[in-house]
Design a protein around this nucleic acid. Structure first.
Lengths: 345, 345
DNA sequence: TTGCATCGTTTAAGCGCTTAAACCAGCAAA
DNA sequence: TTTGCTGGTTTAAGCGCTTAAACGATGCAA
């Protein structure tokens, strides 16, 4: 047995050991004042020898900065959310940027309980600002945080909002995907849209619709389906689509998970991809290259999204201001052509 | 333009608004003393109306608890590390457990710089304890934290150590995998081991060796290769193995990424899996079911590992003690049979 | 009536830092 | 010799909480 928490040295201990005041030690640490060389050296040595490190908490209390950014995944269930590879991909970007600015990341695990309860918690001094990833559409999290004056940046949220936002250009991506199919000669193109509580799917649907319209291809009602990530629903819908008397020759899936699901479903009923059916996804998650055929998709620059959002947030924290209703930063998607698309039979 | 950070109300404001002392407000919040009903109600109302939430930092300073657990991915590069799906899987377990205990998670982004620099930073009051995931073998992080009295639990670390550890039973898993192949009739079984700075691969190798020994199958030197996650090295090694005059009929890969790489490499040179070559992986990451054929593998209970480690850590923090040199907690792996293994040709 | 719990609340110290303001040589200028 | 700087350091207040200890008002037994 061993007792934990033998108390770490404080600034007082260092000051005493060196025969100087606490203020002097503080100035040595923060370099905010010129000190005599020998004093500085003496203090630095003591710090090293006594393995002193200032308490972030005490520091935070007096300086109002904890050098930590909060990430709220709480708008929807944090655990489930983390399981989506795209969330970890964004998180990687966040960590990269935070790391190079000497900041740590705190994951808020509590689910969003509405502005009156949750918002104040995100302002409890633990973090200098908050990054909100993929808030549910109906959540008031962004406005609440903004209202409380918490530096906030959102990723994959619905605009316009007073909070700066970063996202891939969903509209452009969807249009790109659809136009790719049209260019290949497809005209019967179906679209599978994702969970309706996420912001990304509206502009994607619009991109699909506009691309069709622009090519003067009428959109059939039965070709636009609301799906979700669950395999069963997706499989059923794919089979249903392919069972139509005039089945689509191509399916644009709102994300890769669905795209892969479509491929599996098609294969399961003996429909050849891309021979009889072309499939395009969205996101470019790692699994795309593990399906046969590899999934053609629209790549989201997740890492950049995370980095950019974090950069904006750090900027806000530093300057202490931001423009109301800044335009969303939309990063460009790219078409990644693989093996799941070809001309129609 | 808008200025951020309009100051949140403090306990003082609430006290003033209610005409009571700050202590009373504190007691209302923490319930550590009996108060008259009307006082309590009055304070609670004010708290709600003024949207007050206590500063975690101030609280942390006086009570030495920030209700936050630190996760150090810093032993190796945090960003790269996060990209491994198994890290996010463990993280999910950590978040699950933390969430149900009302704790948040802080990701430490700084790489490990040696005990004298990094260890004190992890004791800066920002977190109540630290979870170290997959420290590099040569790192002294565990001993340093232990020496400083920081509540610490390690995942995927090498034992024995004074720090409590949680991991899958790597030895049992590897042995299970190898025995599965032996049972199928294989005798020429190769083993591809992973990066040598991670703790998991030693017991896995030993499990393989012992299984072979137990079956009285001599292990050929050329069948045991040190590989890593990079596709190029793996591909080359697979092709090299299959090019031997007496090639292996089965390959046990130290993890799924390598296992999938082996399958791809085999397919690329026209070797049928599992017809001519059986492959087993380790981990059971999602991608296993996206390869053709689906990868047979040893499943690690990542979620449970994360949960268990977090549970231990919370326990340590609560009690303030832990036994020196506790036995590592090893969770049971399971064999997941899919399509990449069959009897030898 | 006095003494003594009991209950509800306040006082005040302390957590470990930062930082404006005060202080105190030592030195140059007048 | 006095005055006024200047550079180096200390003083002390404050950040927003928690909590042991003190306090005052009641109620009750002796």
């Amino acid at each position: 047995m061993r007792t934990l928490g033998n108390k770490p040295p404080t600034i007082k201990d260092i000051a005493a050991a060196c025969g100087v005041s606490e203020a002097t030690v503080s100035y040595v640490i923060n370099g905010k004042r010129v000190l005599r060389d020998d004093t500085r050296l003496r203090v630095q040595t003591a710090i090293r020898e006594m393995r002193y490190h200032p308490s972030a908490v005490a520091r935070g209390l007096s300086s109002k900065r904890l050098h930590t950014l909060g990430v709220s995944l709480g708008a929807i269930d944090a655990v489930e959310f983390l399981s989506h590879t795209y969330v970890s991909a964004i998180l990687q970007g966040v960590v990269t940027q935070a790391q190079s600015n000497g900041l740590n990341i705190t994951l808020f695990t509590e689910p969003w309980m509405g502005s009156s309860i949750s918002a104040p918690r995100l302002r409890d001094g633990r973090t200098d600002g908050v990054l909100v990833i993929g808030p549910r559409l109906e959540s008031d999290i962004l406005d609440s945080l903004h209202g409380l004056g918490v530096p906030t940046v959102a990723v994959s949220a619905e605009g316009p909002s007073a909070v700066p936002m970063v996202d891939v250009d969903n509209y452009a991506g969807a249009r790109m995907a659809t136009e790719h199919l049209i260019k290949l000669g497809h005209r019967r193109i179906a679209y599978l849209t994702g969970n309706d509580y996420l912001a990304s799917y509206k502009p994607r649907l619009q991109g699909y619709l506009d691309a069709m319209k622009h090519a003067a291809i009428p959109v059939r009602d039965e070709f636009v389906l609301q799906s979700d990530f669950s395999g069963t629903l997706m499989t059923g819908q794919t089979i249903q689509l392919l069972g139509l008397t005039e089945p689509p020759t191509a399916i644009f899936a709102g994300n890769d998970i669905m795209g892969i699901g479509v491929i599996e479903a098609a294969k399961s009923i003996g429909v050849d991809v891309p021979g009889q059916l072309s499939v395009v996804g969205f996101d470019d998650i790692g699994a795309c290259v593990n399906v046969t055929p590899n999934l053609t998709t629209i790549r989201q620059p997740f890492h950049e999204i995370g980095m950019e959002a974090t950069k904006l947030l750090i900027e806000m924290i530093k300057t202490g201001v931001h423009e109301d209703a800044a335009k969303p930063v939309l990063l460009a998607p790219t078409l990644v052509m693989r093996q799941s698309t070809a001309g129609p039979a």
